[in-house]
Design a protein around this nucleic acid. Structure first.
Lengths: 112, 112
DNA sequence: GTCATATACTTAGACGTTCTATGTATGACC
DNA sequence: GGTCATACATAGAACGTCTAAGTATATGAC
């Protein structure tokens, strides 16, 4: 979401969240931090994008959550992948690969 | 735009158009065909996305066009890059690289 | 003890891009 | 004359993200 990566996040945020949760349950705020850290701040996840995305994905049966407490004793919603979420992760990751390879072909790079 | 590459195109269509026009002037319909062919149909550019994008980019000074005739003697708008369009192509291509590398890090692939 | 800061979640409204769907017009071919 | 591919146009909806505001609580500094 930084100014230099304008619209590119669209359609990719779900994939990033799914992939981050593959490692194990995590709460929303921690998901955003994890992605930011993994990308060395190249991707920054706004809360106004993050939480709506978590709702969407929960409503679609990709995630479930339970209320809990963080190590700092705060109320958190601990999210985890559902079986459907896992399937979706696989398919979205495959789509992402196909898409980036297609773009790479237009950009004139060597195909993978 | 095929169902399996749902939102991913967002923010990337401009880059694809700019890159396609780097090779030389082309009209809208041909741009779409060129991208589809280069990606072996992996990316399909809808006319309802294409023409609004061309207007946007023209209004922003990235493209200019002149009316002409195709080899089949049809009226066409022949688009070409402006100097600003060339600059934009460079920066968008750089953004795209940074973005895909960031996503790759989250997905656990080897960085480039 | 109170103030600033980081954590953690929520949500309304705006924005921009893409898609669906439809329309026009023309040339080529049978 | 009918069908198909070419070529451009555009209204309206759908969707995801962002801006910006809000609530609440724990921690550490002073």
């Amino acid at each position: 979401m930084p100014k230099d990566v304008p619209e590119l996040l669209k359609g990719t945020l779900d994939l990033l969240i799914l992939k981050t949760l593959e490692a194990g349950p995590m709460h929303g705020y921690a998901i955003a931090r994890s992605i930011e850290q993994a990308t060395e701040r190249a991707l920054q996840i706004e809360e106004g994008s993050l939480y709506p995305a978590l709702y969407r994905m929960t409503n679609r049966g990709l995630l479930e959550f339970e209320w809990g407490r963080s190590t700092g004793n705060r109320r958190i919603k601990s999210y985890r992948l559902t079986p459907n979420g896992r399937k979706r992760l696989k398919s979205e990751q495959a789509n992402w690969c196909r898409f980036t390879q297609a773009v790479a072909r237009v950009l004139g790079e060597q195909p993978a």
